[in-house]
């Protein structure tokens, strides 16, 4: 039994605005990848995609600004004045900026296209992977495992593909089915790895399962809706996986802030 004089700062440090950011950055990152592929392939809607990408990135940046406790200071400039490639957030910041710039020029349809495509590819890679990376680097928090390096890009893509499917982009359906299933599988792998892992991982699993087990199951199940309903109820098949993916991501971000030490 433990009692404290004073308390460690073990409260949640990321709150609901951060969860919105995690949802938006999934959409933005996924959209960058879509734009990159469209641009490389010369898809007719490339400029539209680029515009949507820009809107999403800007929305995400606004969310980040709003949630930042330093929103009225201009210290964010240091993100771009320092070189800290070990910091996932730094990578993400550059990923989003590169993506924003590249999308802009793709939308303008000016300049060296190869460079913008390269920018989009690099930006997509960074923007899609950095949220999972930002969690997975924290080896002290057992719910944020390396599995997230795969799970987060996949669930990110699910949200974009779901959206594309909702907006009746013909190419989306096939990918939505594939990526949804992959996401669901990774979700199960994530839980399985925790439940069979080290003592600390098992403790974390019990915590996660007892707090959020139900909703996590709902989220993973929702990812399997698309393959089943894609032909019969296309609207639901698009919408439900978006919600499922967002739910799974949010729960992992939220619950994963716990660390199990000293009790």
């Amino acid at each position: 039994m433990t009692e404290f004089y004073g308390l460690p700062f073990s409260v949640h440090f990321w709150h609901w605005p951060t969860l919105i950011h995690f949802a938006l950055v999934a959409l933005a990152g996924g959209m960058v990848l879509v734009t990159a592929i469209a641009s490389i392939k010369g898809h007719p809607k490339t400029r539209t995609y680029a515009l949507i990408t820009m809107v999403l990135i800007v929305l995400d940046l606004i969310t980040l600004w709003v949630e930042s406790p330093s929103r009225f200071r201009f210290t964010h400039v240091w993100l771009f004045l320092t070189i800290t490639p070990t910091a996932p957030i730094w990578l993400g910041a550059w990923g989003l900026i590169i993506s924003l710039g590249s999308s802009f020029f793709v939308w303008l349809d000016k300049g060296p296209k190869m460079l913008w495509n390269a920018g989009l590819v690099v930006g997509a890679a960074l923007a899609l992977t950095y949220p999972g990376l930002a969690l997975a680097v924290n080896v002290n928090r057992p719910l944020w495992t390396p599995v997230l390096l795969v799970l987060f890009p996949l669930t990110g893509m699910v949200t974009v593909l779901g959206l594309a499917h909702l907006f009746k982009q013909a190419w989306a359906a096939r990918w939505l089915v594939t990526v949804s299933i992959a996401s669901a599988v990774m979700g199960i792998v994530y839980l399985f790895a925790l439940a069979t892992g080290s003592a600390e991982a098992r403790q974390a699993f019990e915590y996660l399962w007892s707090h959020d087990g139900l909703w996590l199951s709902v989220g993973i199940a929702a990812l399997l809706v698309a393959p089943v309903l894609i032909r019969r109820l296309p609207l639901l098949a698009g919408l439900v996986p978006i919600l499922g993916a967002t739910l799974v991501r949010s729960l992992i971000v939220e619950a994963g802030q716990a660390q199990f030490f000293g009790f």
Partner: peptide
């Protein structure tokens, strides 16, 4: 503190809960 943007990444990374956010956002 001049460079701190209050992103909390370091708070997440600390295995000992030793870092905290000040009301001013540092």
């Amino acid at each position: 503190v001049k460079k701190c943007i209050g992103c909390s990444a370091c708070i997440a990374a600390c295995p000992y809960d030793a870092r905290h956010m000040l009301p001013q956002g540092y």
